[in-house]
């Protein structure tokens, strides 16, 4: 997949390129505001247009170009083949319908089933995601559930039609730490059971190390590094990835001061010229302010958009 997303003035996502294979878990990592969610919504066809506009590029799903699909056919893919789990289970569930209703509705929108069959499937889905007493819970309203249960219900909704790809947009960020782990395990178990691919969007590298088959690091709407977990965690080749790793607390760094990245992610409408990361980068050279960096290939699917580090042959 490859596309250029563009807002009215704000070029939120610009020049990213990634692939997700069956049964794979792909993580998109980056600070908040770097275009991860916009990317996900573009894949779902859910960007509000206007103001958003996809200026170029392709989104291929199962060999079909989604952007060329009539709106109606894209819609039938949503929820059936590609499903999404959102960040805030509280606001993402409709407060005036029971969760059972909301799950059943998804099933009935895509499959010619009887009410009763859909009801049975709903209850088994709720059971699958580990909600106890699913018959009773199905008739609860979202506000009657706890945060973790709500996210489980969201996941059940995403699973409703057995999708091939689930896009999970920071599904654990709004939850307590203990619940986060449960939801992660749940996703992993379901992935093994149902043979799905997962695109997992997060800013949390510790989550990534636990689940990812492949990692893409995004910065300011640009994919700056890609590789498998070993390559990213052991041999990072982009200063931004490196900075993210340095900011992560580990056993070895006990007692030391954690590194921070100076500055903030640029506003999409006012991106710096050249390499988007250069104002915050410690390895900046004059050329970085001028030229957009090419993806440097390190073999075995590992690449990073930083010619400086490539020339230096790794970090000193």
């Amino acid at each position: 997949m490859h596309f250029h997303g563009e807002g009215p003035v704000a070029r939120a996502v610009d020049g990213i390129d990634f692939q997700i294979h069956r049964r794979q878990t792909v993580c998109i990592v980056g600070e908040s505001g770097c275009g991860k969610t916009v990317t996900a919504l573009a894949v779902m066809g859910l960007l509000p247009m206007p103001p958003a506009r996809i200026a170029g590029g392709r989104i291929l799903f199962d060999g079909r170009s989604l952007l060329d699909l009539p709106a109606d056919q894209w819609r039938t893919l949503r929820g059936r083949r590609i499903a999404m789990v959102f960040q805030e289970p509280m606001t993402s569930l409709n407060p005036v319908f029971t969760i059972g209703d909301q799950i059943r509705e998804t099933i009935l929108a895509h499959e010619a089933l009887k009410e009763a069959q859909a009801r049975l499937r709903t209850i088994s889905l709720l059971n699958d995601v580990g909600i106890e007493d699913p018959e009773r819970r199905a008739s609860d309203y979202p506000h009657q559930l706890s945060g973790g249960q709500r996210q489980r219900a969201m996941i059940a909704m995403a699973l409703a039609c057995g999708p091939d790809l689930i896009i999970a947009d920071e599904p654990t960020t709004a939850l307590d730490v203990t619940v986060q782990a449960q939801i992660l395990h749940l996703l992993q178990r379901l992935q093994a059971d149902k043979q799905m691919a997962i695109q997992y969007i997060t800013h949390d590298l510790s989550v990534v190390s636990a689940i990812a088959d492949r990692i893409y690091v995004m910065y300011a709407g640009v994919m700056v590094e890609q590789g498998n977990p070993g390559q990213i965690f052991q041999q990072a080749r982009h200063p931004y990835t490196r900075a993210l790793l340095d900011a992560l607390p580990t056993k070895e760094k006990r007692g030391q001061r954690l590194a921070t990245i100076p500055g903030t992610v640029p506003h999409p409408a006012y991106k710096p010229s050249g390499c988007p990361f250069h104002p915050r980068c410690g390895f900046r050279e004059p050329a970085c302010e001028r030229d957009f960096p090419q993806m440097c290939d390190y073999g075995d699917g590992h690449g990073a958009r930083c010619p400086v580090i490539q020339r230096m042959g790794g970090f000193p």
């Binding site: 929820g79 993402s92 929108a109």
Partner: peptide, 17 residues
Amino acid sequence: GQDYVRTARAKGLPDDA
């Protein structure tokens, strides 16, 4: 503009629904 309307779209419901 609410999140749950986006969810409804993400489920693949028709616009009318």
